[in-house]
């Protein structure tokens, strides 16, 4: 065997410059790992009111209630519904801590977005809180309004938006957290979604974890080889990462196609029959439809 070159012997590699701060690669890898964890989470327990409902009933009911929430303008009704979601989550023995994080985070985020809507420049009305008045401030060529107040109409509008967004997000979460994802996709068929599309969603979900894992491994592999500033920078990594992910996608896609063909796939999709509807499914769907009708009537 030929002798090893001098630079290959241990102890001869030059020291790399120090790279302070958390690498964006590590952050990216962590985000992907978190998504992997969310995807690989085991199916929700069969106990609990919501989990026992047929996915189709949940799809119908959830959709009716979300549309009803969109139609409603009464903040009291929205607030009641919002609290109701929390009670339903607790009663159905769903992971409450995760729900609370969402239950609090969504209104907070909406409130920040809606803050400018409380001001009189956006929503005129009776002033409730005067921020400043009789001012003549300028920022460059822009002169700020001489008075800025928070109006009652503004608060009402912002509050209604915040509650409505939070209620819709909570309803969607309740349906998703109490149903295994693929059952949820199959449940969409009751809305008229074609089977081919449902199968596309199911296949996509099946291989999502594989691709997220691949992307995660790409980040780690790159991280383990990062000793100094990289030529081309972070964008070059993203381009290479996305490109090689596409290669993996393409070859995996081809293999899956061949495997499906080999087992008799001819373009038509056939799925096993879904479980039968029970009394509670009828009850839940009808109640939600009634809620929607009521919201429509009193919109």
């Amino acid at each position: 065997m030929t002798a090893l070159p001098a630079w290959l012997r241990p102890g001869t590699s030059p020291l790399a410059p120090h790279r302070p701060g958390r690498s964006h690669l590590r952050r990216g890898a962590e985000a992907l790992a978190a998504r992997l964890g969310a995807l690989a989470r085991p199916a929700p327990p069969p106990s609990g009111f919501l989990a026992a409902l047929d996915p189709r009933a949940k799809v119908i009911g959830g959709l009716c209630l979300i549309v009803a929430a969109t139609l409603t303008g009464q903040p009291l009704v929205l607030a009641l519904g919002y609290t109701g979601c929390l009670l339903l989550a607790a009663w159905s023995r769903l992971p409450l801590r995760r729900f609370l994080a969402l239950w609090l985070a969504v209104p907070l985020f909406s409130a920040v977005v809606m803050l400018p809507a409380t001001l009189d420049v956006v929503t005129p009305g009776h002033p409730l809180l005067v921020l400043w008045h009789d001012a003549a401030w300028r920022i460059g060529a822009w002169r700020l309004p001489s008075a800025l107040t928070v109006t009652d109409a503004g608060l009402l509008a912002a509050g209604r938006m915040v509650l409505r967004t939070a209620l819709c997000a909570s309803l969607a979460w309740l349906v998703a957290a109490s149903t295994p994802p693929v059952r949820l996709f199959y449940g969409l068929r009751v809305l008229g979604v074609p089977s081919a599309f449902v199968m596309t969603l199911a296949l996509m979900h099946r291989y999502l974890a594989v691709l997220v894992q691949a992307a995660h491994d790409l980040h780690l592999a790159r991280l383990s080889r990062t000793v100094g500033p990289s030529p081309g920078g972070a964008l070059a990594f993203v381009a290479a990462g996305v490109g090689s992910l596409f290669r993996r996608t393409h070859s995996l896609g081809r293999s899956v196609c061949l495997a499906m063909l080999s087992r008799g796939y001819r373009g038509e999709v056939r799925l096993l029959d879904a479980p039968r509807w029970q009394a509670q499914d009828w009850l839940a769907s009808l109640t939600c439809c009634l809620a929607l009708a009521a919201a429509w009537w009193w919109r």
């Binding site: 693929v182 199911a202 296949l203 099946r206 995996l252 293999s255 899956v256 061949l258 495997a259």
Partner: peptide
């Protein structure tokens, strides 16, 4: 590659 063979939920 068993991964490609197991494509159902």
């Amino acid at each position: 590659n068993s991964e490609a063979m197991l494509f159902c939920p």
